[in-house]
Amino acid sequence: MHFSPLLYLDPGSGSFIIQILIAVLLGLGVALRASWGKIRTYFGAKPKTEDDDDSENV
């Protein structure tokens, strides 16, 4: 894994490994959502506007 010299935090081996496992699983959902959006658009559904976070009030 290439690290930039400025990554000063220790990401932790266990945290790194488990993060990748969890994220890959969750990423499938995100990918599916993206594809589903494309399919819907192909069949004439209005494309969902991407969340514009700028209006988000945290």
Partner: peptide, 17 residues
């Protein structure tokens, strides 16, 4: 030890996380 190439977390995975 985290070895080179043990990444493999694409953008969808990052967003999912």
């Amino acid at each position: 030890e985290i070895k080179a190439g043990s990444g493999g977390m694409n953008r969808h995975a990052m967003i999912g996380l």
